[in-house]
Amino acid sequence: MTERIRADPSQLLPMDSDTGGLGYRGFIVRAEDTGMADDWKRLGLPSMVRLGGAFQPEAAESSRFLLHTAESARLDLKDPGPVLAQAEATIIDSRNVQGLVTICYPNAQTSDTDFSFWNGASYQPYNNCYNFASNYRTNTFAQPGRAAGSMYTSIDCSAVGSAAVRDGWLTACRSDANYNVCLVIWPGYDYHWYRLCLNNHWCHKPGGTAARNYDNSGLLITNPETCNRGGYTIFCGYYNGFGLVVS
């Protein structure tokens, strides 16, 4: 976070600034450790500042970064999902309403061969393709829309895709390189997500089974649109969803 602030200190606001009244008003950021406090002092910043808010679109990307890298357990909320989803929507809207391009997560990629984070006996059965696509292990068998309080109601591209968008996934990014997950449908039966990993290989985790980098033919997945997907015959499209909070 300090690197983002150092690059553009103007995205910060004083604690007493007007950020739009009720609703999402940005984050309060405090420099607590010695190194961070020293950096802020050199930048001429106070120890506590406000970042983001509906009237500060230039801070949208840093706000979104902070939103999805913060530890949810530190939020004093019984169920942070709906609150996070609302904050996400407001951050996006603060850019969109001013005619600016929609921001996206950077195309952060993980190993296309090491799936130890997903395939341990204590969590493999409890995380699915949506968890894997989000790169967020919840042990809840995450479902599109549940974090936002509004799950999908049918198995089709529109319903499942819209539910993911409610969770904060995006369909418009700065460049195609930011589209790092895709949705496919087994008509009337099931949905499935793939995620782009290193070396231009797409990986996935079918339900509670092991995460992998190969398709139904045992071949490395270089193109999810043309690989052997079994019964998932409908290709819905690409999204940007890496690192989202899902439930």
Rank of each mutant, 00 (worst) to 15 (best):
T222H: 15
W193N: 10
N139F: 12
A73D: 15
V49T: 01
T102Q: 13
L12E: 11
E3P: 00
C104T: 00
G81V: 11
D33P: 09
G20S: 01
S162I: 03
A37E: 14
Y130N: 07
D79N: 15
Y123W: 09
A210I: 01
A59R: 08
V29T: 12
D167K: 07
M151F: 02
A142V: 10
I28A: 08
D114W: 13
L67Q: 07
D156S: 02
R229W: 04
N216P: 02
S150L: 13
T138A: 02
I92E: 12
R42I: 08
R74F: 07
S150R: 10
A54P: 08
T209A: 15
R229N: 01
D8A: 14
V246G: 12
A147R: 08
D114F: 07
M151C: 05
R174C: 00
M48N: 05
V97G: 00
P106N: 11
E3W: 05
I5H: 05
R42H: 10
G52V: 06
I185T: 03
R146I: 14
M1P: 01
V184K: 07
T233K: 00
H68I: 05
F132K: 01
Q56S: 15
S94A: 11
S158Q: 11
Y191S: 00
G99A: 04
A7F: 00
S154K: 09
P57S: 10
G207S: 12
S122R: 04
G243S: 08
D112T: 04
S72G: 12
R95T: 05
L51D: 11
